[in-house]
Design a protein around this nucleic acid. Structure first.
Lengths: 144, 144
DNA sequence: TTTAATTCGGATATTTTTGTCCGATTTAAA
DNA sequence: TTTAAATCGGACAAAAATATCCGAATTAAA
């Protein structure tokens, strides 16, 4: 469904969100350890998220990554996915046709239409706040 | 969502299905041309489908690929997808955790659960007959 | 002011996916 | 029986994704 880079990005963003709620800035090493991802590769992913304004980075000693608390409910899963993987997963044709549409539908268009739309809605309505609240309430996990 | 190999596999299977309904056997070159795919790579994909019993191959001159007509309603999209990409798209965790489940759900488990289930049902209930009928009725296209 | 901790960014390496090539085998038809 | 058309399968090549390395820039704290 999503690339590894994207999975790391989602996990990292949630971890940063959870910590930002407690006003804790977290650095690359801590993030990578928490989400069991390769450090240097995770750095690349975090750079993408930073450039796209999804997370904030602070250079230097005591630096790291954080998200402004008033942004947590505005950052959606779709923002993260789009930054890293683009929007093809939930927008483009299931068979990869560039010209597949409602008027000229490919062989699986009507089967995928509904699922794509549900995925889109889900990604666009699930915020980092929702996800980090679930972690805080111990309804879900991030590290295993 | 699916690998290119899988997209080629789905397209090829539908094309073979459409032709099998008319009792026409089609060969690799014709298939690859129809679905605009690289010939040799498509050969590999067709071999996978053949080994998995989804399509039948006939060697030698006048050989090619076909599907028995009484099988068309029994071959589901899920059979093709599983053969080529495996079942991770519609079975495994959205974040890639091996131990994510209903009792120990990952951070996005409940968001993805519904979509994964819908995708699974769709793939398991859409047959090659359904898809080739739509092509025959010109409700959908395969080649563009 | 120096040091250590940190992100940034470019280069490189490895692995996986995608794609190509070609000889072996099979088989219908000339 | 020969030939041509086809699949099969192994080796190889290219591209993309994943992962690593390292020096530069930044900055808090000693």
């Amino acid at each position: 469904m999503f690339s590894k880079a994207c999975q790391y990005g989602i996990k990292a963003a949630i971890f940063i969100a959870v910590n930002s709620q407690e006003n804790r800035r977290v650095n690359l090493k801590v993030i990578a350890k928490e989400i069991s991802s390769p450090v240097a590769f995770t750095a690349k992913v975090l750079q993408i998220l930073t450039k796209n304004g999804i997370i904030d980075s602070v250079k230097g000693a005591a630096g790291g990554f954080e998200i402004k608390n008033d942004q947590l409910d505005k950052i959606m899963l779709s923002d993260i996915v789009t930054s890293i993987d683009g929007d093809t997963v939930y927008r483009s044709c299931g068979l990869g046709y560039g010209n597949c549409s409602e008027i000229t539908p490919c062989a699986v268009h009507f089967q995928f239409k509904h699922i794509r739309e549900e995925l889109k809605v889900m990604l666009e309505t699930t915020s980092l706040l929702d996800l980090s609240n679930n972690i805080n309430d111990e309804l879900t996990f991030l590290k295993r």
